[in-house]
Nucleic acid binder design. Sequence first.
DNA 1: GATAATTGTTATGGACCATATCAAATATCG
DNA 2: CGATATTTGATATGGTCCATAACAATTATC
Lengths: 173, 173
Amino acid sequence: MTVSKTAEKTSEKPADAAKGRKDAAEPQSEALQLGELSEQLGYVLKRAQLKVFENFLRCMASLQLTPAQFSVLLLVEKNPGRNQTEIASTLGILRPNFVAMLDNLESRDLCARIRSTNDRRSHILVLTDKGKAVLARAKKLVATKHEARLNDLLGQANREALIAMLAKIANEF
Amino acid sequence: MTVSKTAEKTSEKPADAAKGRKDAAEPQSEALQLGELSEQLGYVLKRAQLKVFENFLRCMASLQLTPAQFSVLLLVEKNPGRNQTEIASTLGILRPNFVAMLDNLESRDLCARIRSTNDRRSHILVLTDKGKAVLARAKKLVATKHEARLNDLLGQANREALIAMLAKIANEF
DNA sequence: GATAATTGTTATGGACCATATCAAATATCG
DNA sequence: CGATATTTGATATGGTCCATAACAATTATC
């Protein structure tokens, strides 16, 4: 425990209205008070998630991978031979919405749909050689540029504690 | 040998494919391996955020308030006399998208737009009496049914540490 | 063999987010 | 002062993500 307290920054988008000031006659428009908002779990969770996704996209700009696409590649690599329904449902993606996603990945030759011989309804998913190579590069980028940033910000122990708590919320809330 | 039969239900959303099994002839389709996914910050953050919002909506079902609407009411209460641009930008909401949101809250008589006498372009935002009453009830619901659940799950100290870390990420990542 | 269930897919609508643009009001500056 | 630029709330619009219904092909069930 003992995590460094929050800082009153209000640097970027949130909480930033008053701009330049020259002749300060009176305290005209001041910064707004966040109040209880900064203690609301949902509020701070959502803001953190947006920042993390934003940073993820920057780190992956060279590979053009979104967080969702990255998660698909990771899961297919870890579980080769599964069909679309299994992969999608594991990620919480509805089957209809998974089609366009796969169309995209397949058109970029990152993964492939293969008709199953056992059940000719289903499409087995596998990574292509290019897909494996891209995923390997993606992993390095994520580790060195993305996840590493958490260590710089929170420290190794806090980082692990944070992930564990979030996983607990995701699974048991 | 390879994949034979698919799972029978695929009921839940996350990481849940194989359910009940009775006559276990062979280890047919098993649960998928999450692998490195469960350590990915963005993945676990997003999943936690979805769960928290989902629970928030359940807790607020009687008041019909979304997380975004709740945050607006909180901010307007804490900062009375501000205009739309200031409230919206503080919450990271773009001005065009804030209009419909206010139309909704105003139509429910929770807040009101008042033409400013100083600057007749801007609309000063205030909570109505009903808005104040609803917000007070919302706060109680959030505290007793929503935030309290975090304490049950993580404990008071961990809860505060989590909020602090998320705030730090939101502000400094 | 008739019926039900599953898989991938399409179509569609809603919620959320982002940009361009506008009229009214105000600020700025020659 | 008056011309121009800026600000505010608003509209229109498009994109992305999410959710449901429905369909053809295939398989399971009885």
